[in-house]
Computed example of a mutant assay.
Amino acid sequence: MEWVYLVIGIAVLAIAAVAGLVTTRGRRTLPPADRSDTLAPPTERTAPPPEVEVDGGPEAPVLETPVETPVETAPTPTVERPEDTRSRLVRLRARLAGSQGGFGRGLLRLLSRERLDEDTWESIEDVLLTADIGVAPTQQIVENLRTRLRVDGTEAGDPRSVLRDELLAVVDPDMDRRLQVSGEDGVPGVVLVVGVNGSGKTTTVGKISRILVAEDRTVTLGAADTFRAAAVDQLATWGERVGVEVVRGKEGTDPASVAFEAVKHGIEAGVDTVIVDTAGRLQNKQGLMDELGKVKRVIEKQARVTEVLLVIDATTGQNGLVQARVFRDVVDVTGIVLTKLDGSAKGGIVVAVQRELGVPVKLVGLGEGPDDLAPFDAGAFVDALLG
């Protein structure tokens, strides 16, 4: 029986081997690229760029590199070099001679007559009064002229020389007309500029700064006319043109506080001179007196006010004297600035205002140009009057 079981076992193994071979041959093996579990996402194919025809031949397109847009910045202001004092004196003297010559020539024509009768002397008085010299100076000039020309005689004497002497005497060439702009012990000098609105006060502050810069002085400006925004902006423009710093406050700020900060900044910066612009409202005289007095007191807590300049419009004539009296009562005026002296026969206001205040005319303005302001020279002024 054992051999029977052995035969059956061999038969079973044979049948199993045959069945496995059939199964292997019937199975299909898929290539890896077609198997769903290893498929990669389809790749997008980019069409080749079109050819560009250039002069009949193909050329690959040129890729443009993007250009960066430059950032716009504010232009740096050009700092001007102001005209020096000597050259502006020569130029302004010539301009003054052209604009004021009618006054002097009129007097010379009258004095050159063969016979100086009473009618002629009355005409001479009229010319002098029309030029705003004032009553007292006019009487003094006429009396001296009558005496000298009567003694010398119009033929023996030179009417022009005699007239020049008399005009020079009333203009007073011996007055000290130097600007006091320097301080002491390292503290800057402080120039306080006063005057009514419309007289050219703020413009004068800017022009004075140009004179000092031309002399290689360092300057700080104080915009203390805080009631007029236009005045503050105007002063800032003047300072920018010559590289001078301007201390300013908001519109309506207490003027004394702006003046204080300007002087403080000037001390810290070590500048030579601080120039302070002030308000010039005359509607309320008492208010103006209180305001200007306060400004000066506040400034002098830090530095001495070395100069108080009163700006007067020369074309206002005798009305300018009324303004001068008001400001004389407010602050101790030390010098006069006469603006708009060009194109007018009112040159005698120089004499009248000096007599009224007892202080010298230190600067004169003869035009609208930035350098049309110069130190006053008595001899040059009288020569210009005589043409």
Rank of each mutant, 00 (worst) to 15 (best):
residue 299 I to A: 08
residue 278 T to P: 01
residue 284 N to Q: 09
residue 72 E to W: 10
residue 148 R to G: 00
residue 227 F to T: 11
residue 345 A to R: 05
residue 151 V to I: 14
residue 55 D to Q: 13
residue 15 I to S: 07
residue 167 L to A: 10
residue 366 L to Q: 03
residue 127 V to W: 03
residue 244 V to D: 02
residue 387 G to P: 01
residue 337 V to T: 12
residue 80 E to M: 05
residue 353 V to W: 13
residue 61 P to E: 13
residue 76 T to F: 07
residue 108 L to H: 03
residue 16 A to L: 13
residue 176 D to W: 01
residue 295 V to R: 07
residue 22 V to S: 03
residue 74 A to Q: 12
residue 247 V to D: 08
residue 3 W to F: 06
residue 318 Q to D: 07
residue 200 G to A: 07
residue 61 P to N: 12
residue 343 G to P: 04
residue 318 Q to H: 14
residue 359 V to D: 09
residue 140 Q to W: 07
residue 288 L to D: 00
residue 37 D to N: 14
residue 273 T to L: 08
residue 107 L to N: 07
residue 111 L to N: 04
residue 230 A to S: 12
residue 345 A to H: 07
residue 234 Q to G: 06
residue 306 T to C: 05
residue 58 P to Q: 05
residue 385 L to H: 05
residue 4 V to H: 08
residue 47 A to H: 09
residue 126 D to F: 03
residue 213 V to M: 00
residue 90 V to Y: 02
residue 228 R to C: 06
residue 159 P to G: 10
residue 21 L to R: 14
residue 212 L to S: 07
residue 300 E to Q: 13
residue 143 E to T: 11
residue 193 V to P: 02
residue 93 R to K: 14
residue 38 T to Q: 15
residue 232 V to E: 05
residue 40 A to V: 15
residue 119 D to W: 02
residue 345 A to K: 06
residue 129 L to A: 04
residue 98 G to K: 13
residue 79 V to T: 08
residue 93 R to V: 01
residue 76 T to A: 12
residue 288 L to T: 09
residue 331 V to W: 00
residue 357 L to Q: 08
residue 43 T to D: 14
residue 89 L to S: 11
residue 290 D to L: 13
residue 279 A to G: 15
residue 375 P to Q: 11
residue 380 A to Q: 12
residue 336 I to H: 02
residue 376 F to W: 04
residue 113 R to Y: 01
residue 338 L to H: 01
residue 132 D to Q: 09
residue 297 R to D: 06
residue 15 I to G: 02
residue 202 T to Y: 08
residue 386 L to S: 01
residue 72 E to F: 13
residue 153 G to F: 11
residue 162 V to L: 06
residue 145 L to R: 04
residue 25 R to F: 13
residue 86 R to K: 13
residue 246 V to T: 11
residue 114 E to L: 03
residue 326 V to D: 05
residue 228 R to T: 05
residue 99 S to I: 09
residue 100 Q to V: 14
residue 139 Q to V: 13
residue 132 D to S: 04
residue 235 L to Q: 04
residue 371 D to Y: 14
residue 30 L to A: 15
residue 355 R to M: 08
residue 28 R to S: 10
residue 195 G to M: 10
residue 315 T to E: 05
residue 75 P to W: 08
residue 160 R to Y: 02
residue 107 L to E: 01
residue 305 V to S: 13
residue 320 G to F: 02
residue 221 L to R: 06
residue 198 G to M: 07
residue 358 G to D: 10
residue 37 D to Y: 01
residue 302 Q to T: 14
residue 196 V to F: 10
residue 13 L to F: 15
residue 242 V to M: 12
residue 380 A to C: 02
residue 327 F to I: 10
residue 37 D to F: 04
residue 2 E to C: 01
residue 189 G to L: 01
residue 31 P to Y: 10
residue 120 T to K: 02
residue 201 K to A: 09
residue 1 M to L: 10
residue 212 L to V: 07
residue 261 E to L: 06
residue 352 A to Q: 14
residue 138 T to F: 02
residue 314 A to F: 03
residue 231 A to G: 11
residue 242 V to E: 08
residue 71 V to E: 13
residue 238 W to I: 06
residue 116 L to E: 04
residue 296 K to M: 11
residue 6 L to Q: 08
residue 192 L to F: 14
